[in-house]
Design a protein around this nucleic acid. Sequence first.
DNA 1: TTGTACGCGTTATCAT
DNA 2: ATGATAACGCGTACAA
Lengths: 350, 350
Amino acid sequence: MPETESHGMPDSIEPAAERAAPEGATLADVARLVGVSAATVSRALSRPGMVSEKTRKRIQAAVDQLGYVPNLLAGGLASNRSRLVAAIVPSIGTTMFSEAVETLSDRLGAAGYQLLLGISGFHRSREDELVAAVLSRRPDALVLTGIEHSPAVRRQIMGARIPVVECWDLTTSPLDMVVGFSHEKVGRAAALCLVNKGHRDIAVIAASDRRALRRRDGCVEALAEHGLAPNRVIITETPGSLALGRKAFAELAESGPLPRALVCTSDPLAEGALTEARVRGVDVPDRVAIIGFGDFPESASMAPALTTIRFDRRLLGSTAAQLILDVLGGRKPEAGIVDIGFEVIARETA
Amino acid sequence: MPETESHGMPDSIEPAAERAAPEGATLADVARLVGVSAATVSRALSRPGMVSEKTRKRIQAAVDQLGYVPNLLAGGLASNRSRLVAAIVPSIGTTMFSEAVETLSDRLGAAGYQLLLGISGFHRSREDELVAAVLSRRPDALVLTGIEHSPAVRRQIMGARIPVVECWDLTTSPLDMVVGFSHEKVGRAAALCLVNKGHRDIAVIAASDRRALRRRDGCVEALAEHGLAPNRVIITETPGSLALGRKAFAELAESGPLPRALVCTSDPLAEGALTEARVRGVDVPDRVAIIGFGDFPESASMAPALTTIRFDRRLLGSTAAQLILDVLGGRKPEAGIVDIGFEVIARETA
DNA sequence: TTGTACGCGTTATCAT
DNA sequence: ATGATAACGCGTACAA
């Protein structure tokens, strides 16, 4: 009897073989145990509707008994669908990105996709490497941060022929799809918020990443349209932090007369400025009104003196997920360019 | 001539074939173009030392020309090494986890590994699903949060036969390796810090996840050893947040006389308590001393009235990475149980 | 140093 | 509803 089962095998040879997973059972092992073909097992697991009720149950039992775990490397290779979505973000150390990534991961996970995460640390060259590395896993879709990418990245991505969502920014000419908001408009809104309150003496503290600089640009432009020039513009490193905000405010205080109002390109910078102002006995917002960006949760209660600009990070993540799932599901998304907008949160009348 | 090259092919048929990547070039395509075997190309890419200088250059040229991107699904299947490390964390929305994950990702990336991230949201059952999902990618190693896992998880993991690092906690009997610190000791340190300052009337606000509760346990034990019982113990949801901290402090204030000192199991809770105290005109630390945990960067400048307990999150991440790389590299780690310790950061003498 | 040949575990196609 | 068989793209003994 050449193809006999292992029943009756002496315990001394493979004692654990029938109890725990011996050594990574395969589809073929399950099939053998049940007495069906591998194809049937594969179908039972991925398209249960195509398999008869009773064989499906027997297969399930065998799967449990063997502790069978499907090999998605093999599955992906055969089907050309990895069920993997790659996301490349500058950092997960700020809620700006982490909340969106969490939401993205949740939504994708619910649909059977997993998240391959690349963290670029705000370095352009690192994005290049990460894109290359990540594409070698043959992800079914790709999420990128921002709309500026090196030619190499653009080339690789076009060659990959998968859906791509650029996030946290907006453009009329995305690589594929884009979901975010206009940083120029955010900067304008910050400026207008202060101008509308009657301020004319306004300084700017901006981090040096591309999107922060575009917020600064929008701000300066809006001021110009009101016949104003910024009191001063201070550029800090990226990412903006509380410490950098303190330093920048100190520089502001020591290099000339304080402005009447201050635009910071992010809440951490704004919080730092606020902190330094307090230390120096400068009243916020009475002496210096400060507006930030990002609506970081800490600031809501800790820094009620700050005004900020909020966008919905979770909406960003879920929208990106939805776009991807639509495309992968063969549905056409309602729109490939999604502006999730933002709103000014004035916590004080200042 | 049966195996002819595509030279001389009329442009009208495959015009782009010789310029851009036509449609996912494979190793075989590269080999054909160079006129060597696929094996040689494979070696040139993964073990350059085994290939002659000049053929390696020609291969590199062909790779560039075709825009060849290796398929790691196939590679992983063939070699049984995915170059993937999976990590499962409750959240990336707090620096507690995000910084460690960032460091982990950096270190692994530098060694040629990529990070497959699962976010469990503090749900035990979700960890089960994620482990199963993640193991189907055949990761070369696994990073888990904490030391308590369901039997199903333990079984699956043992069956996977890969290095595992449990993080953010400590035990003498890890699944495989562990890097973190003792939460009981953190709780004890918090209590002792206050007791040593002469406080005897101490309350506790704790989140309800396992590690936070163990910090509470350590705290209550240490108090008992000094003949003290906590004024009150308030349990909040997980994860602890500024809002929950405010609510808990309000409850404390309204349900009886305020304690003289307060232990919070995390900094967000402590910041919330501090905020609510301020709102109620309660001086911190003169009327109520507050100690938190986690050393969240925001608290350093914003809440100088708080004492906190710090552990090195980046050290945690890099140690985990090092353990994994050691094992995967065939080196034996110095120790499979790493206590990274912690320190009390007293920001005020209170 | 290079080539040959096989296998990795799964899905898809085409029968039955 | 189920089975046989051929890919999928690559790594790796083994041979040359």
